[in-house]
């Protein structure tokens, strides 16, 4: 396996090939990075979903100082996850639950924005280390299932990416707690990913709540605004920078229509 920009294949196809080859390394898509070890997915990052550190520290599960201490001590040897457990900051179970939550969340977004700009860097490992490796096929199947789940709840993908505004629906005072907290952050400017970030929730789980709110008529996407992206993407081209939300929306629509 060589370092090369690949053309012709989709991210799922390339992941399938890498799994069959028992490959180790990092596969970058337009919106995320898959870390593989011996053909299994050990970690995924995406600019659209909070990472493990965000989920743990912003919720108070691990103090920020404790998190950074673990990163400093064990980052260079790719054992930060192990270090969090060995130093007594998290149980193995808590680490696995939070890690898998972050992994599948990021994988959904790393695959959602279909694009051919794929790059595989052999041998590259993530500083977190292996916590609970997942077969590539499981990750791909789950991402497809999640897309279908969102579509069944409310088939408007604009909810996922556009700034959201509150609509004058009834029943907002009787929502389940999680959905109520999500609605409280809909302010006309925030996108789903920004709301997830404020809540320290996984973004996909926030999308589920927001699509349910949209189905109930309580939330609607704002008309296309001149919005800024949640995170700046260092390698993004000028065109993507000029009109981030429109481009994103188009790719999502294309991906959904291609199903």
């Amino acid at each position: 396996m060589t370092t090369a920009a690949r053309t012709g294949g989709s991210a799922p196809e390339l992941l399938g090939t890498l799994a069959a080859d028992h490959a180790t390394g990092a596969l970058s898509t337009e919106s995320g990075i898959f870390y593989l070890s011996a053909g299994h997915v050990v970690h995924v990052e995406s600019a659209y979903s909070p990472d493990l550190g965000d989920l743990l520290t912003r919720s108070g599960a691990v103090a920020p100082a404790g998190w950074w201490d673990a990163v400093e001590r064990a980052g260079a040897v790719h054992r930060v996850g192990r270090q969090l457990v060995d130093s007594g900051r998290l149980t193995t179970g808590a680490l696995e639950l939070c890690h898998l939550g972050a992994l599948f969340d990021a994988a959904y977004f790393a695959l959602a924005h279909g694009g051919a700009a794929l790059r595989f860097r052999p041998g590259v490992a993530h500083w977190l280390g292996a916590v609970r490796p997942v077969p590539v096929a499981t990750v791909l199947r789950e991402s497809r299932r999640r897309r279908d789940l969102l579509h069944r709840i409310w088939p408007d993908p604009a909810v996922d990416t556009a700034p959201l505004i509150r609509a004058a629906g009834g029943g907002a005072d009787r929502l389940p707690p999680r959905r109520g907290r999500t609605l409280a952050l809909v302010d006309g400017g925030r996108t789903a990913a920004q709301i997830a970030s404020v809540l320290a929730h996984r973004t996909f789980h926030t999308l589920v709540e927001l699509r349910r709110l949209a189905a109930d008529g309580l939330v609607t996407p704002a008309p296309p605004p001149p919005a800024t992206p949640v995170h700046s993407v260092p390698d993004a081209g000028g065109a993507a920078w000029d009109e981030p939300d429109t481009a994103l929306l188009r790719r999502l629509l294309d991906a959904l229509e291609a199903l």
């Binding site: 919720s59 108070g60 599960a61 808590a94 639950l97 939070c98 939550g101 320290a200 996984r202």
Partner: peptide
Amino acid sequence: FVVTTFDSTV
């Protein structure tokens, strides 16, 4: 249900 301090719904 498993109660966690971080976002987890398991």
